[in-house]
């Protein structure tokens, strides 16, 4: 539980994106459709128009402060509203002052610039309402409770991080390291920027099966395969994330800020249920680096992966469809 030593607003600032435009390398501007962002997902996909040559993006935002922010008897003064763009991967932090739309109102708006040269993956936008409280300048009195995601590559404005899937002939791949796995149908590379699943096209038909849209037995088998693959993937990414933890002086692990953090936050509640994720991370880290308990934890890690893969559902449907097929062939 958290406690502030000064008065502030309880409710969050609401932030929404209102338009997105790309500046291209030839100097032209492409005003993207509103499908480039999702208010539901709080995500912007700058890759949506398929441009590879964009230089910067201009993202117009509008923020609504919670009620009371502009009350005449509010315990703060010098109210300002700041939109802050951050990217932990490229150490970018830029801030923009928003301007009040209508005197006496609570809506503020402005535009953020995102330079393509400054980002590789995702940047985040948060808004802070800042004032002078009890003589202390620059204090945040309210902020967004969830940042917007600006994905500089994705072509779909979704919040959930999507792991990469690539197909390759392991025998003939230019990635020579894949040749070592020529007899495996798929491998997981957790060392890439975003974990990547390589599917071996040398296994004939596997791609067709994965791409299939049909119903019937084929789709049930496909779902079973997908469940098997994703169980592998989730197990691998969890291990990779937990094995790469940065540790505070004093031995406490710190939550990673990239995909590893996202994976851990999602999976830890299944691995160590009933405690805060921070506490769960400490426990898992202690067991991994400590004397005992790591082996015992494998079942829970596997369980978390199986849950994420919807394995039970896929299996049940596959079995039912087999039974049906058997019945039909008998009659």
């Amino acid at each position: 539980m958290k406690f502030y030593p000064y008065k502030r607003l309880n409710r969050p600032v609401l932030l929404r994106v209102t338009s997105v435009a790309l500046r291209l390398s030839d100097g032209t501007r492409d005003q993207l459709e509103t499908t480039a962002y999702s208010t539901q997902q709080q995500a912007v996909a700058l890759g949506i128009a398929g441009h590879t040559d964009w230089v910067s993006a201009e993202i117009a935002v509008s923020a609504t402060l919670p009620p009371g922010a502009n009350a005449p008897d509010a315990p703060w003064s010098d109210l300002r509203v700041l939109a802050v763009l951050t990217d932990g991967e490229t150490n970018v932090r830029t801030s923009v002052d928003l301007t009040l739309d209508v005197e006496g109102g609570r809506d503020w708006s402005g535009a953020l610039k995102v330079f393509r040269d400054d980002h590789l993956g995702r940047a985040y936008v948060a808004v802070y309402a800042v004032g002078t409280v009890d003589g202390v300048r620059g204090r945040s009195i309210a902020e967004t409770d969830r940042s917007w995601i600006i994905d500089t590559a994705s072509d779909e404005p979704v919040r959930g991080l999507q792991l990469e899937v690539q197909k390759a002939s392991f025998k003939k791949s230019s990635r020579e390291w894949l040749q070592a796995y020529a007899d495996a149908p798929w491998v997981v590379d957790t060392s890439a920027r975003v974990p990547t699943v390589f599917v071996n096209t040398d296994v004939e038909g596997v791609i067709d099966l994965l791409d299939s849209n049909g119903s019937g037995v084929e789709s049930k088998v496909r779902d079973l395969l997908v469940a098997q693959m994703s169980t592998d993937v989730w197990t691998a990414v969890f291990h990779s994330a937990i094995g790469d933890l940065e540790v505070e002086p004093g031995g406490r692990p710190v939550f990673p800020t990239d995909w590893q953090g996202e994976v851990l936050r999602e999976m830890l509640p299944d691995v160590i249920p009933g405690v805060h994720v921070e506490e769960a991370l400490r426990q898992v880290h202690r067991r991994r680096t400590g004397e005992s308990g790591w082996v015992e934890l494998q079942t829970r890690i596997h369980y978390a992966a199986v849950r994420r893969a919807d394995a039970t559902k896929a299996l049940a449907f596959a079995i039912r469809s087999l039974e049906q097929m058997n019945r039909e062939s008998e009659t």
């Binding site: 502030y4 000064y6 230089v55 910067s56 300002r80 700041l82 802050v84 932090r93 830029t94 801030s95 610039k113 330079f115 040269d117 400054d118 802070y128 800042v130 202390v136 300048r137 620059g138 204090r139 945040s140």
Partner: peptide
């Protein structure tokens, strides 16, 4: 955690052309 140094010490917007 509660202070925004961006307010106490504003920075200028960067011109990406210079780096390019």
């Amino acid at each position: 955690a509660t202070l925004l140094y961006d307010i106490l010490a504003p920075d200028q917007p960067r011109d990406p052309a210079r780096l390019r």
